[in-house]
Amino acid sequence: MAELEQKSTSVGAIEADINATRDRLAATIDELAFRAQPKEIARREVASVKASLYAATHTPEGDLRVERVAAIGAAVAAVLGLVIWRRTRD
């Protein structure tokens, strides 16, 4: 009788473990499905670009790196000037 009770406890523990594993897997699948949504991917990409831009234009203390901002502005102005010049030539 003690063996039967021990086996049923083992079976119960195994079933509980299977159910817990199933719940973890379901949560993982839900998280992966959420992460794969185009809106979520776009949101993460925008956040990444913002963080990169902030890191490129600010010091670790949070101060603005004026020389980098000026260089970026000059590059944008040069590209815009080139685009405008090419359009007026055609």
Rank of each mutant, 00 (worst) to 15 (best):
A78M: 11
L25G: 10
D90V: 09
V79C: 04
E40Y: 04
L53K: 02
A13F: 09
T28V: 12
I84A: 07
H58A: 00
A33P: 03
T28H: 08
E15P: 01
G12T: 06
H58R: 00
L82M: 10
M1R: 13
R35H: 06
A2E: 04
V46Q: 09
L82E: 07
A47G: 03
R22C: 05
A56N: 02
D23F: 11
T21D: 14
A27E: 12
E5P: 04
R22E: 13
T28A: 14
M1G: 15
G73A: 06
G62F: 03
N19Y: 09
A36D: 11
A70W: 06
M1W: 12
D90T: 10
S48W: 08
R65A: 05
R44P: 04
L64N: 01
L80I: 11
V11H: 12
T21S: 14
L4W: 04
A55P: 01
A70E: 15
D30L: 09
K50W: 01
R43W: 04
V83Q: 11
R86H: 01
G73N: 09
E15F: 11
S48N: 08
R65Q: 08
W85S: 14
L80N: 07
Y54R: 14
G81L: 06
A2S: 02
I18S: 00
L82R: 08
L32M: 09
D23P: 07
I29N: 10
D23L: 15
G73R: 06
N19A: 13
R35N: 05
L4V: 13
I14Q: 14
N19P: 05
L80W: 12
